[in-house]
Design a protein around this nucleic acid. Structure first.
Lengths: 159, 159
DNA sequence: CAGCGGATGATATAATGTAACGTCTGCTTC
DNA sequence: GAAGCAGACGTTACATTATATCATCCGCTG
């Protein structure tokens, strides 16, 4: 996604951390050092990152960490709407609208690997109507759209 | 899903196998014994089934099988539009519209565990429009709606 | 300080998925 | 029918992802 390749990403990270502080303060929960660090690592890019990648990065900076450490941090961050899981990749990415308690809606580029969260309000409504038509009460939704972003659309590749 | 609990499920299975025969014949590919058996096992219910569950069932009927056997069969069946993967469950379920080359759209009941495929034509169009608005060229989509089916909506439970 | 609960450390293991290679089988070609 | 080929399968080993369990630590409260 050429636009996001070019942007000031440190601002993304700072905004995400500030939002996380605010959400945790409001909810009376603790953004501990490891949770904060995992969130920072997730936000190092807009590409979803695997739990074991996070683990490796923690290890490389000298922090003792085992898989449960990372998974617990990720569970916490997901519970409070700070990161999303990308099921089709078994990976995690920062939430663009921290704390808003929405379902995740992503466009995932098979060229550059970036995942862009989009406003799925319209989709959520449409899905709710479809569900209602089947007597189905919707609680949450997973929407992961795979394709090519604007920057990668013209390039060669498998996507 | 009370309606599907009550239905004549043997008909689902027979229809699925007949459709699979037709698709494979049309495409000049072979629905080998193991592929056919895996498809039957997937269709034993409308609940998504894990690869290792399938493996256990194959073993319990005396068939020698290792993980690659099942995954290869599942890959074949997915490639030809006969089963879908439910990413949020790491599980597989029969396709309601065999061979039509569509993306999967499912409603998954957290009460009974059944996954019902629905016609996502409208969603696909909406997603295409959203993508176009971002310069994103959609290739496929994963839509997994979690909630409570009509039969389970009134019951207690975590869903 | 004692007690409590949340958070983390640490070990082990479960669950899911794949690489690599040999063999077999069915088909084509001669 | 034999040689050669490609797809399919068997088998072993391994990679990746995720969780159970229990001990320990830390911060708060009374």
């Amino acid at each position: 996604m050429s636009a996001s390749h070019a942007h000031d990403h440190s601002r993304c990270i700072n905004d995400a951390l500030a939002a996380a502080d605010a959400v945790c303060a409001e909810r009376g929960v603790r953004l501990t050092e490891i949770r904060r660090r995992v969130l920072e690592l997730v936000w190092q890019s807009h590409r979803p990152v695997g739990a074991y990648d996070l683990l490796d990065r923690l290890a490389s900076e000298g922090r003792r960490a085992a898989p449960p450490t990372v998974y617990r941090a990720l569970d916490f961050l997901m519970e409070h709407g700070l990161v999303h899981r990308i099921h089709s990749l078994n990976a995690f990415v920062g939430c663009a609208w921290a704390g808003e308690g929405h379902s995740a809606n992503f466009m995932i580029c098979s060229g550059c690997g970036e995942a862009v969260e989009f406003d799925g309000t319209g989709l959520t409504e449409a899905i709710g109507r479809i569900g209602a038509g089947h007597g189905f009460r919707v609680r949450s939704q997973v929407v992961e759209v795979i394709g090519r972003c604007a920057g990668c659309a013209g390039e060669a590749g498998h996507g």
